[in-house]
Design a protein around this nucleic acid. Structure first.
Lengths: 248, 248
DNA sequence: GATCATAGTCGTCTGCCTGACGATAAACAG
DNA sequence: CTGTTTATCGTCAGGCAGACGACTATGATC
């Protein structure tokens, strides 16, 4: 690795974000409308350049906060109400992925609870939560033009990562508010996997997995029906045994 | 995303390789000795700059071939004898990870069968297969100085990826020659996980998992003892049910 | 207030998978 | 021929998962 700057080609490095949440029983992703060419007017994933003195994870957290007001879940201390999970997804560096110049994008995956409040600093016309099925739909439509750049691929990879990761980790709780019921957690799994799960078996499974859920003592009827116990996410990050996705 | 080149800082982009194989019942990684500062004389992961017109996967495959003579496994057509599995691992971009300049490294993970032939173009003094336990050992020793840069972290991430991925995918066969026995495959799992497995249960499990192994009809006694059936990797990439790593 | 719809929670049963382990088979070394 | 090594088949008990019945506690409706 020589010093000589002419020995290597310069790249622009960006972070792109796949921000997922569950709204109205559907898995949704954050999309922004592009205001300038290329792909002007098309929807894209939020993202931006990594600064010269900034770590990749820091850049992703900064973009996430700018775009949504969400803060990255801190391991220590009490989690704020609007805490999100953030992890690196993959890096995309096809020489032709951006027609202007050579851009390498380090995509990150963020999982957030459904936000009742509007997004900070967001323009309603240029930022929206869209069902991933719509965004990944190939057909043209009012809101269904393909995503800009290679963002459909990135989104698909992010969705697949989320789908498989909630199997063997407690990440599904990142889609829930701080306190949640077993039924709410089940609806998260159903929305992310796109399947229906048996409430009784799910309840047994999830309450029987050590470290997954801790009861808070409270109950709620916000979903209607009989009052349900409230839980908080337990300390376990890896689930043993895992939640099994039903056969394809 | 403006055009203006002054609007974003330039980065150097490299690929680093975690190349794993199983030799003498131990999981080993490829290490190269650095010939110049920084970290002169220390061991490091092989890698190099991504060229201006090159995809990330292409750059990784090129570096792999230069360093080992291995070719990336092609989905179509017959696999050559020296075929390796290659996938992107993660990207490391701490601003201080290289003291000379801002380098973002897209690490890749390669899994290869034990190579009986010496490496093409390699100097025996500057390239070696080293047990990952040695490379990750913090203590100083003749061959155990810590890896250069953040390569210990990258190697650890690669090893962990391999350990978890052979659970639910057929990737363990990438460590085997084209034709192999159940016992040889078991020794791969034992070396990667660092545990002893029951030969009888392992045999039942792998032969009972659909699409994992297809018998070639031949047998071999190269491991001594009773002749063992030879198998080839089946078409399945995802194992159902998965191989379960024994409890920690 | 009785009835109904909605969710939540507890049990039961059966089949499958797993881990532990006995037994047999086929090679080679002495 | 006997012991050693590796491979392969079988058995058995425990645990977990899917299917599903039953009961409970709310709010909504008549």
């Amino acid at each position: 690795m020589p010093y000589d700057p002419s020995a290597f080609p310069p790249f622009a490095v960006t972070v792109d974000l796949v921000v997922l949440t569950v709204r109205r029983h559907a898995l949704c992703a954050l999309a922004v409308r592009r205001g300038e060419p290329p792909f002007q007017g098309r929807w894209a994933l939020p993202g931006g350049f990594v600064r010269g003195d900034e770590d990749l994870a820091t850049a992703a957290a900064r973009e996430l906060a700018e775009e949504t007001g969400l803060h990255v879940q801190d391991q220590t201390g009490p989690a704020p109400a609007n805490a999100a999970h953030l992890e690196q997804l993959a890096t995309y560096g096809d020489p032709k992925r951006d027609p202007r110049m050579r851009v390498v994008s380090v995509a990150h995956l963020a999982l957030a609870p459904d936000l009742p409040a509007p997004r900070a600093g967001g323009d309603a016309h240029s930022v929206r939560w869209a069902p991933v099925n719509e965004l990944l739909d190939e057909r043209e439509g009012e809101h269904t033009a393909p995503l800009a750049f290679d963002h459909a691929r990135i989104l698909a990879d992010g969705v697949e990562r989320a789908r498989s990761k909630i199997e063997y980790s407690s990440l599904a709780t990142a889609f829930c508010p701080q306190e949640f019921t077993v039924g709410e957690l089940r609806r998260v799994y159903e929305a992310v996997w796109g399947v229906a799960l048996d409430p009784r078996n799910f309840h047994r499974k999830v309450t029987g997995t050590p470290g997954f859920l801790v009861p808070t003592g409270g109950t709620t009827t916000r979903q209607g029906g009989r009052p349900a116990q409230l839980f908080r996410a337990g300390g376990a990050t890896l689930l043993n045994p895992p939640m099994l996705r039903p056969e394809a």
